[in-house]
Amino acid sequence: MPVAFTHLSRYAWLIWLLALAPTVLYAGTQTSLQQLHEPWNDLLSRHVTYDGRLDYQGVLEDEDELLQYLMSLRKVEPTAAWSPQDTKAFWLNVYNASAAYLVVQYYPVSSINDIRVKVLGGSKSPWDAPVVNVGGQMYSLNQIEREKLSGPSPDPRTHFALMYAAASAAPLLKEAYDGNRLNQQLDVQTRRFLNDSNFNQLTPTHLKLSSLFDAYAKDFGSPSEVLAFVSRYVRTPIEPTATIEYISFSWALNDRIGPDTSQPMSKH
């Protein structure tokens, strides 16, 4: 999809500015971390709809607030003094705010996958382009997901918390992630997603699951582990011999109102 030159210029300017910005170590307490994410929390409370979509037009009108939040991250460097939950909540917020801002720069757009970000020597996908500066280092969305939110024991609930900007992805939480309540927030997200027939259709003997389970099969484990995971969160009793199939994934933008086009889900 063609992108207006003004959008490219503005986004390139942001990357240049963040890359040059000085780094200041941020040693945050729980209170100061909450204050750091308060602007993002406010934007979510105003612009996430009741069904978990994002009103990008509304975010666009408040673009300066989102930009200021992202700019503040250049002074932040997570440290060992942070709890694991605080660190995970931090990177979830960084990822989601960065993805939202990326879409806003090219809005209106039918899918985040239509975006190509100009970089030196060409362009990159929205997943591989460096889109935000944290503590003086530029990251892509894929880097954040793989290097900061995955590990030897990945938490599969994370895939229902990340803002993939897709209609078939989990509905957005109407607040920022908070290390002090993160486990509860992730449980809420997982339970909401799995029990919604728009994303998963479940009977005791047969599960039609979101393609997120297939794309990130390594994180969810074997079929028996998937059944056990799903059983912990759903109202429908699941038989241990239940069969699993995967539903096609719509990469249509998770806008307040938008088209619904389905295609196979692939791990970006």
Rank of each mutant, 00 (worst) to 15 (best):
T6G: 14
T6L: 13
A12L: 15
L14E: 14
W16I: 12
L17T: 10
A21R: 10
P22I: 00
Q30W: 01
L33D: 05
Q35P: 04
L36D: 03
D42W: 11
L44R: 10
H47Y: 05
V48K: 03
T49L: 03
Y50T: 13
L54E: 05
D55K: 00
Y56N: 07
Y56M: 07
G58E: 12
D62P: 00
D62C: 01
E63T: 00
L66H: 01
Q68R: 11
S72D: 09
K75V: 04
P78Y: 01
T79H: 10
K88Y: 03
L92D: 09
L92E: 09
Y95R: 00
S98M: 10
S111D: 04
R116W: 06
R116K: 10
V117Q: 11
D128C: 08
A129Y: 00
P130V: 06
V134S: 03
S140K: 01
N142R: 03
L149W: 04
S150A: 13
P152I: 12
P154F: 06
P154D: 12
P156N: 05
R157I: 02
T158F: 01
H159T: 04
Y164I: 10
A166K: 00
P171G: 08
P171F: 06
Q184N: 11
V188K: 14
F193M: 08
N195W: 04
D196Y: 03
D196V: 00
N198C: 10
N200Y: 13
N200D: 14
N200A: 12
N200F: 12
T205I: 09
L209T: 09
S211G: 15
L212A: 10
A215Y: 02
A215H: 02
A217V: 06
K218P: 07
D219A: 04
F220S: 06
E225V: 02
V226Y: 00
R232H: 09
R235Q: 15
I238W: 00
E239L: 09
F249W: 12
S250P: 10
W251V: 04
A252P: 04
R256P: 12
D260H: 08
T261N: 15
